[in-house]
Design a protein around this nucleic acid. Structure first.
Length: 351
DNA sequence: AACGCGTGGCC
DNA sequence: TGGCCAAGCGT
């Protein structure tokens, strides 16, 4: 980035946004006041999660927990069950803790520092809520904004080392008077630009409002930015899970530890997940009860840092006496089952 | 400061 | 198909 490089004009981006703004359920209509609860809820759900995945969860949450107070007063198990399938379950735990803090304080803090102090709210979300809900002139730097900023200023250093430089570049964009006059629209315009035009793989530079000011485009390297450090490979791990039912149509479940992998979520009892496959003589020792276990099917599932291959085995006994709790199979929809466990349930039910 | 932490869609 | 990616945070 040379000293002579010009800053892409905020006015051009805002004009583009006024024509192309996406209508999303958590967005206020032009001239309408934003609802901090909805903005915050959507921002937490959208962390590392696509709009399409969030939409049904957002609507379900608003119906079930129509206000931050309603969310604060709900049992944590209800919140975890409503979040089941969305992933990164620490978000749900922190969401609930944050709701309690906000309800207790009588409302959301209206500035970046106050928001940043709440559970589950980091630098990005604090800026996003401050800008979108309260009109604070901050530029939230997410993956979209990082990409746009890296390109318009041609930051060629790779992430995560380039984090600070890119954040400074994004802040430069937001310093323009036109951006400071419309912080909410400017932030969302950057999101929309990144999501629909300045996309990761094949950016639509031809229709970009910043085409003329983009340093990466000028250098012919837009699609290559931002550069990223290589990621580690995801190893395969193996596990065996047990589908144990009784004559009343109930199945044995277990609660996972409150923190860590799938923390606080419900699971079928099973072995640990390890790199070497399990022999029958080994996994039998982990079975919740002595029974005639029969293979019910296999499940593959990708988690954040490893791939999982699960063997589901099933048995029926006259009476279940084992650690855990029982639920009617018909009621499993209301349980906090993560996606990997829903796959296991599907396989076992079909067998 | 790296690393742990889900899921589904896309090419 | 498999690697990449998405409005990151907590530790």
């Amino acid at each position: 980035m040379s000293p002579a490089s010009s800053v892409p004009p905020a006015a051009a981006l805002l004009a583009w946004y006024d024509r192309h703004r996406r209508r999303l359920p958590w967005r206020a209509e032009p001239g309408e006041a934003a609802d901090p609860y909805r903005v915050w809820l959507s921002e937490i759900m959208l962390q590392q999660t696509t709009v399409v995945a969030v939409l049904p969860y957002y609507e379900a949450f608003l119906t079930r927990f129509p206000s931050v107070r309603a969310l604060a007063e709900a049992p944590e198990a209800d919140v975890m069950a409503a979040w089941a399938g969305l992933g990164y379950y620490a978000r749900a735990r922190n969401l609930h803790a944050c709701a309690k803090a906000v309800a207790g304080a009588g409302g959301f803090p209206r500035d970046v520092a106050g928001l940043r102090a709440l559970p589950g709210i980091g630098p990005y979300t604090a800026s996003a809520v401050a800008a979108i809900a309260f009109g604070v002139p901050a530029v939230p730097v997410d993956g979209n904004v990082e990409r746009v900023a890296a390109r318009v200023f041609a930051v060629t250093q790779a992430l995560p080392a380039a984090k600070q430089d890119i954040a400074a570049a994004a802040a430069r964009l937001g310093e323009q008077p036109e951006a400071r006059a419309r912080p909410s629209d400017f932030a969302q315009a950057l999101f929309d630009l990144g999501a629909t035009v300045c996309t990761p793989a094949s950016p639509a530079c031809g229709v970009c409002p910043w085409l003329g000011a983009c340093a990466a485009r000028r250098a012919g390297i837009a699609a290559e930015l931002p550069r990223k450090a290589p990621k580690r490979a995801r190893p395969l791990r193996h596990g065996v899970h047990f589908w144990l039912t009784d004559p009343a149509g109930r199945v044995l479940l277990r609660r996972r530890p409150p923190r860590g992998l799938l923390g606080g979520m419900t699971e079928l009892p099973g072995t640990e997940w390890r790199v070497s496959p399990w022999a029958a003589t080994e996994w039998l020792a982990f079975a919740p009860m002595r029974a005639e276990w029969r293979p019910a099917g296999q499940v593959r599932h990708g988690l954040t840092h490893f791939e999982l291959a699960i063997e589901v085995v099933a048995a029926s006994v006259p009476a279940i006496r084992a650690e855990g709790f029982l639920r009617p199979v018909a009621d499993l929809a209301g349980e906090a089952l993560p996606s990997v466990m829903r796959k296991c349930v599907r396989v076992a039910s079909a067998a």
